[in-house]
Every structure is written in structure tokens, then in C-alpha cells.
Design a protein around this nucleic acid. Structure first.
Length: 479
RNA sequence: GCCCCUAUGGUCUAGUGGCUAGGGCAUCAGGUUCUCAGCCUGAAGACUCGGGUUCAAUUCCCGGUAGGGGUACCA
């Protein structure tokens, strides 16, 4: 297929949540897979709902994720996105054309908002339709406020084929004659999306399934204009809770927030790609580049998906493990700041220990808090049946360890290992009987990332000695 | 209320008119390791219900139920 053109058309009304992002991703992938064009269109026709900063969030998200749009109006030599509020006149022009073609009608209201009941409104609208051309012209000339409403024929079946949901049938009797142009001259989504998709030669419309039931109305508009109808691809919704009880709030996991929580953008993209699409094989890890070749519409399904943080964690951990060590270290560094201020630790060794142990970067501080400050642990921690460790052995081992620790001339992992294993061999003890008490002495915690050797290396000789001394005192006084 | 859509383990999903219904995450157990993580092995866990059609339905049809969406001068 050639000449594929897709668009991502968000409203700048708040956060860019993962449902939005996924629509952008799929639209991008479909275009790029076919060497087509991907377009960004900001749908800001409801000026009241615009949220400050929301547009920037959209740009930022697309920039970070690498979903680059291909064309748009010329802005100082560069192209920008299409922005509907800047195209206001275009929609009005086409709406008037639609009136001429019999697909819409003027309706004049005494004021902007009216409190009619639904029945009264319908009656009122029927009267609008009866207005003669002259009456309409007079009112328009007088500057009476008006809207343009869609004219919907009676009892006709509208059928279209959605590429995901299949054949969708609707009867026009169930369709409302919605407002196309508001009193303030702005179009509604219901009109602007049709005009723009046509003008921008969009071949495939990808959008959330919440538009499925209003699509027949759009089909009617295309037909009234005599325009060709793009292919429709409606995407299942993403829910965000386990027990399926759905609430609006559960829908807004924002991309930027996930980044802040320490998820990698590649992992987020990979995860949401899988949330509603599958490659028909058992592969789960895809880069954006790989998605471009493997993505296809046939793999999109229709059932809503629950956002599963566990799976994201897992995918993120896979990406973290696959990171070049240097990259991982660089990304981890900010999370060490608090500790670096108080302890002179070996951060490279720390990163080495952490890379296989975190799902996301924000887990780092709690995992390494013991480095900053030795917790106030109980000597009971030295007792461990499985390790065959008890307070007595621990005290003896720690004394021995402290005794000749200054013989380690160069504080390398290898030298520390040699030193500790020397003790193990000399004392004819199990590894754990020596290494367990040392690790406890150095960390004060039952579980730590890395073992005694790694932690000693990270802490450095001075702090290692201090902590062993503390442990010895603790054991002596049995607290 | 009316209209539309959907229904495979907790979750993401594959799949089929006849198979022990496959995989990932999560959970649990065992192994490895100085703890944890990792890695390896294993376990538990699903076709929404009722009626058809059929020799045979998780799969096809109808209905119920449940969930979701729409029903705005929001998108």
C-alpha cells in the first residue's frame, strides 16, 4: 500500500496519557510501515477546555518518544503541526457549502445557551428547518446568532467497515442532529475532524473506540460532500485498574509521570504497543524500529485492555538489564545524590550491583538507603540458621576480619574477596558463616543488593572498618 | 431509557467445529548463589451463562448477564 497518511489529533486538554500515546504510536507505525506520512493536528476547537501547557506536553511527548510528524503548515521555514483554531474560517466555509448540499441547516437561537428540554429542542430544530431562504438571509444580515446543525435523513441504514471492529451498521433515526458550527463560529469536533481528514488526505483514521458510534454521522457528512471515506480503525480503550470497575480517573496514567517514576521511554512504548496489539507470535520485546516492520492492523484487537503495571515493570527491567553499563550508570547517578553527600562511596561498583536488581530507577533510593546511614539493627540479625551463623561466630569472625583488614593494600573487589576467603579457609567455615555476619555488619539489613564483598567495595575501607567496629560493640553488649 | 461495541486464568494475550486450550507478566515451590535480585526447573490457575445448529461446540446462530462506549454549542 502506498500513500498511507495518518494523523494524531489530540486535544490540548490535559495530560498525555498512555491511551493517547498508543493512538499516536499506532498511527505513526501504520504510516511508517508503509512509507507514508504521519501528521499532527491539534484539535483545540473548544477554547474553554484548553489547558495551559498541554500543547507543549504533546510536543514533548512526541519528541521524546521519537514519533516525528512529517508535514504541516510552514512556520518560519519549518513545518509545524496543524492547529484547528487557526483554521476556523475553513470550517465555516465548508459548513455553508454543506448547507447548500442539503447536509446541514441554520438554526437561530435567542442566546448562546438555551435550557430547552430535549423534546423542546427537537421541536425548535424542526422549525429551523422550515425557515425559508429569505428568512435565513434576513436573520444572517441582521447578525442574529446561529449554529449550523447536521441534517440527518430519516430511517436510513448507514454501514461502514471498521478495520478492527468489522461491519458497523446504524440507523439514522438513532443519530442526533449535532451542532457543526457553534454560535462562536468555531466548529465542533464532529465537523472539524471530517473536514480536516479530507483536506489532509488522511487515508486511515485511527482513534479511540469512543468514536465508533458517532462515525456514522461522519460518514453522512463525507457522503453529502461527495468525498471519499477514509478507512477507519477504532482502538479499544485502555482501562487502568484490576477489578474492571471503570472510572474516568483510572484512565489517565500520563506518559511524563511514568518517565518520572523511572521507566524508560523505550519500555513504555514497547509495553503500550502490546496493549491492544499482538504480533501473532510469542515475541514481546520490540524496539520502535522493529515495531515499524512488525506492526500490522490485523493484530489489533477489540477488547479493552487493563493497564498492568507488573508487566510494565517486567518490560522495563528487561530494558534496564539490556542497557550498556555506562548508560545505566549515568541514568542511575541522580538517584545516588543523597548518599554521595554523606558517604564517599564507589558508585561504579554500586551500579554494577543494581543493574539486575531494579525494575525502575525510582526503586534505587530505598534499595540503598543503608549506605547513607547504617540502620539501627538488632544483633539478633546475625543469627541465621540456614547460614549456620550465630552471634558467637559472628563476633569472632568480625574481630578476625577487622584485625588484618589494613593488609588489603588496594581496595579492589578481588583483593577483598581474597581476604575474606582466606578467613573462610583458615577457620574452616562455610562461606555464609563469614560472609553473612560481615554483610549484616556493613548493611544492618536482612536483604541487600549485592553481598558482603560488593558492599565492602562500595563503602570503601574506612566506612567498612567503622561499621565492623560498631557491629563488634553491638555483639559484645548484645543489643 | 435508547443506540452501539465487547466477553479465553488475577492480568496481557494466542488459538480451534474434534488438541492434555498455547505463551508472557504476577503468584507459589524447588535448584544455584554469602542475603536479595538474576538465572534454571516445576506448580496452581481460563474458554460468562442458557438455548439452539451439529456426530461433535470455547469456536457458528439466538437470547440472558456483565463490562465498556455514545446519547453536549466536549473531544
Amino acid at each position: 500500500m502506498s500513500n498511507i497518511r495518518t494523523r494524531f489529533a489530540p486535544s490540548p486538554t490535559g495530560y498525555m496519557h498512555i491511551g493517547n500515546l498508543r493512538t499516536a504510536l499506532y498511527s505513526y507505525l501504520l504510516a511508517k510501515k508503509n512509507k507514508g506520512k504521519f501528521i499532527l493536528r491539534i484539535e483545540d476547537t473548544d477554547q474553554e477546555r484548553i489547558v495551559k501547557g498541554a500543547i507543549d506536553l504533546i510536543y514533548k511527548t512526541l519528541l521524546i518518544t521519537g514519533l516525528k510528524y512529517d508535514e504541516g503548515p510552514n512556520i518560519g521555514g519549518n513545518y509545524g503541526p496543524y492547529i484547528q483554531s487557526q483554521r476556523k474560517e475553513i470550517y465555516l466555509k465548508y459548513a455553508k457549502k454543506l448547507v447548500e448540499k442539503g447536509g446541514a441547516y441554520y438554526c437561530f437561537y435567542p442566546q448562546e445557551k438555551i435550557n430547552y428540554s430535549k423534546e423542546e429542542l427537537l421541536k425548535y430544530n424542526e422549525n429551523c428547518k422550515k425557515l425559508s431562504k429569505n428568512e435565513i438571509k434576513n436573520k444572517l444580515d441582521k447578525g442574529n446568532p446561529y449554529v449550523i446543525r447536521q441534517l440527518i435523513p430519516l430511517n436510513k441504514d448507514i454501514i461502514f467497515n471498521d478495520l478492527v471492529f468489522g461491519k458497523i451498521k446504524a440507523n439514522t433515526n438513532d443519530l442526533d442532529e449535532g451542532v457543526l458550527i457553534k454560535t462562536n463560529g468555531f466548529p465542533t469536533y464532529n465537523f472539524a475532524n471530517v473536514v480536516d481528514d479530507h483536506l489532509m488526505k488522511i487515508s486511515h483514521v485511527l482513534r479511540g473506540a469512543e468514536y465508533l458510534s458517532s462515525t456514522p454521522k461522519y460518514i453522512l457528512i463525507y457522503k453529502s460532500f461527495g468525498w471519499s471515506i477514509p478507512k477507519h480503525i477504532h482502538l479499544p480503550l485502555i482501562l487502568k485498574n484490576a477489578n474492571k470497575k471503570f472510572s474516568k480517573r483510572d484512565r489517565d496514567s500520563s506518559f511524563i509521570d511514568l518517565l518520572k517514576q523511572g521507566y524508560l521511554k523505550e519500555a513504555i512504548i514497547n509495553y503500550i504497543a502490546l496493549l491492544g496489539w499482538n504480533p501473532k507470535n510469542e515475541r514481546e520485546i520490540f524496539s520502535l524500529k522493529e515495531l515499524k516492520t512488525y506492526f500490522n492492523v490485523a493484530g489489533i484487537h477489540k477488547t479493552p485492555a487493563v493497564f498492568d503495571i507488573n508487566k510494565l515493570n517486567w518490560i522495563n527491567s528487561v530494558y534496564i538489564k539490556n542497557l550498556d553499563f555506562d548508560k545505566f550508570h549515568k541514568l542511575s547517578l541522580p538517584y545516588y545524590q543523597k548518599i554521595i553527600k554523606k558517604q564517599n562511596i564507589d558508585t561504579l561498583s554500586l551500579s554494577k550491583v543494581l543493574q539486575t536488581r531494579i525494575n525502575k530507577f525510582s526503586e534505587i533510593p530505598e534499595k540503598i538507603d543503608f549506605l547513607e546511614k547504617l540502620p539501627n539493627y538488632k544483633s539478633k540479625l546475625f543469627e541465621n540458621k540456614k547460614m549456620k551463623s550465630n552471634k558467637e561466630i559472628s563476633l569472632r569472625i568480625l574481630k578476625i576480619t577487622l584485625c588484618k583488614i589494613d593488609n588489603i593494600t588496594e581496595w579492589t573487589e578481588e583483593n577483598i574477596r581474597k581476604y575474606f576467603f582466606n578467613i573462610i579457609n583458615k577457620e574452616k567455615l562455610k562461606n555464609g558463616q563469614v560472609l553473612w555476619p560481615i554483610r549484616i555488619a556493613l548493611s544492618g539489613k536482612e536483604f541487600t543488593p549485592g553481598g558482603a564483598i560488593e558492599i565492602a567495595k562500595i563503602l570503601g575501607p574506612k566506612e567498612t572498618k567503622i561499621r565492623i567496629v560498631k557491629a563488634i560493640n553491638k555483639l559484645k553488649s548484645n543489643i
